Amino acid sequence: MTERSLHAIDARARIALLEDDVELRDEILLPGLADFGFDVQGFGRPTELYVAMLAGRFDIVVLDVGLPDEDGFSVTRRLRSLSPIGIVMLTGRDGVPDRVRGLSEGADAYLSKPVQTELLAATLRSLERRLRMQAGAESATAAAGRWALDAGGWCLIAPAGAMVALTQAERRVIGLLLERPAEPVSRETIIAALTANVHDFDPHRLETIVHRLRKKVADGTGEALPVRAVHGVGYVMIP
């Protein structure tokens, strides 16, 4: 598994905050969500958000209904037509018709102002888990008939659809092998992915990791993991 793909797996949830109230955005919500572990970026206008989305990825958008240039309902409708991104609406309009409209336009959650940062953070975590589970289910469907990692990279999906949870070492090993199907991966390459200090790494530990992974997969899925040792080289994943 490449350093880039591992970074993507380990990255924090990226949140876009669309709020034109500068004090609320910059002094309360941005630092508050950062304290709860989110990678959050603030925007004051919908156009600023759209430009940022062209340049980078966001997992969830938190937006106000009352915005300059375009209201939050139309922003939600536009975002939902383009992407399965998570959407949380923040607004002072707490009437039932507005809630129904927000959810009908595609929002995943609708919170009334003033909102406690702790409640917003809990809502975002809940939504993040739901999106990851959905992505995992889609990955499982797409992976039917072949071995693959789920969207989060922490579960191995067998061809029949059964899944087994992986340790960090196991996901690094299997990630490398899956990236190069039918191509032997050297022991040195795999060990370098497992540790920053390759000279102090016991080579027998790699054999142990592969042995335990084979057993775990067989016990958990009823299928044999097609990882073979290549004498004098390393290991290969047979498609």
Rank of each mutant, 00 (worst) to 15 (best):
L166Y: 00
L29P: 10
F201H: 14
R132K: 09
L206H: 03
V210C: 14
R80G: 09
W147M: 11
M133V: 12
L131T: 08
S83P: 07
S104R: 09
K113G: 00
A169E: 11
D10C: 12
L127Q: 06
S74R: 12
P97A: 09
V236M: 07
A122M: 11
D21S: 11
P46H: 03
D219N: 11
P31E: 05
L111G: 06
T76F: 00
R172L: 14
L79V: 08
T47A: 15
V173T: 09
D69N: 14
V198N: 05
G220N: 08
M133P: 01
P114A: 04
E23F: 11
C155Y: 14
T221D: 01
A34W: 05
A137N: 10
V210S: 11
V62H: 00
I209R: 09
F73A: 13
R212K: 14
F43L: 07
T167G: 11
R93V: 13
G56K: 13
E70A: 11
I157F: 01
R14N: 07
S139L: 09
R77C: 04
P46D: 03
T2Q: 09
L131N: 07
H199C: 08
E223L: 15
R228Y: 10
V173W: 02
P114D: 01
R132F: 00
G92Y: 00
A34M: 10
R25G: 12
V88C: 05
R205F: 06
Q134G: 08
L119W: 02
A193Y: 06
L33G: 10
G86D: 01
D108C: 06
R45A: 12
A143R: 00
R129S: 14
H211T: 11
E3Q: 12
H199V: 13
L29D: 02
F43V: 10
L206Y: 02
P159E: 04
E188F: 03
R99Q: 10
W154R: 15
P46K: 03
T189D: 08
A151Q: 03
S81F: 01
V96Q: 08
T189E: 09
A52P: 08
D10Y: 05
R125I: 11
A122D: 08
L24W: 04
I60Y: 03
A160N: 11
D35E: 06
V22W: 07
S186T: 15
T47P: 06
D39F: 06
E48I: 08
G42K: 08
P184V: 08
V230K: 07
G92H: 07
A151E: 04
A182Y: 02
V51Y: 00
A107Y: 01
E118T: 15
G145L: 02
A55G: 11
L119P: 04
D108F: 04
I238W: 01
A16P: 07
I9S: 09
A107L: 03
G145P: 06
P226G: 04
G72L: 01
F73M: 13
A107E: 00
G86I: 06
S81I: 07
P114K: 04
